[in-house]
Design a binder for these strands. Sequence first.
DNA 1: GTGAAAAACGCATTATGATGCGCTTTTCTG
DNA 2: CAGAAAAGCGCATCATAATGCGTTTTTCAC
Lengths: 72, 72
Amino acid sequence: MTKQEIGEKLRQRRKLLRLRQRDLAELAGVTLRGLTDLERGEANPTVNQLAKILDVLGLEFRVVERSAHAPS
Amino acid sequence: MTKQEIGEKLRQRRKLLRLRQRDLAELAGVTLRGLTDLERGEANPTVNQLAKILDVLGLEFRVVERSAHAPS
DNA sequence: GTGAAAAACGCATTATGATGCGCTTTTCTG
DNA sequence: CAGAAAAGCGCATCATAATGCGTTTTTCAC
């Protein structure tokens, strides 16, 4: 996944949960600034930073074989 | 996945490919220091840093639902 | 067991990610 | 359309990830 794809996935998930960036940022313990940059794919976050946000969204990241395809 | 799990996965994959840390680090364009820390799970790498290494190893990371279980 | 290769790590430095603040732009809602 | 809410973003600062170098420890082949 590219950073853009990650950002888009986070955004979709956030909207699904009807959260504003501000609220998600607060729940995750990151700044609004950091979150907006991340959602737009214009950031190179640390694993911790990303994990904090994924955690609130009920998501996680996983290392897999490159050729493996995503489930529907 | 925790950082320890990620590190262990990278290490296993590297060994499978019969690479030394030094060689993998060079191929990935990171320092030996950064790689050793990462494999031991004692690092909080950026997504870019992690991606560079995963790329050489034929791996990638993906954002998924937290409850989804890993394939065998 | 000995020696060499590989990996771990302490410490200082450099590069860059995260934050803070405020202003601008975009997106909703009525 | 008008106003408000949400999101985007420029810039300076702070925090910390990445590097560089040398030394120590562990691993492995003989």
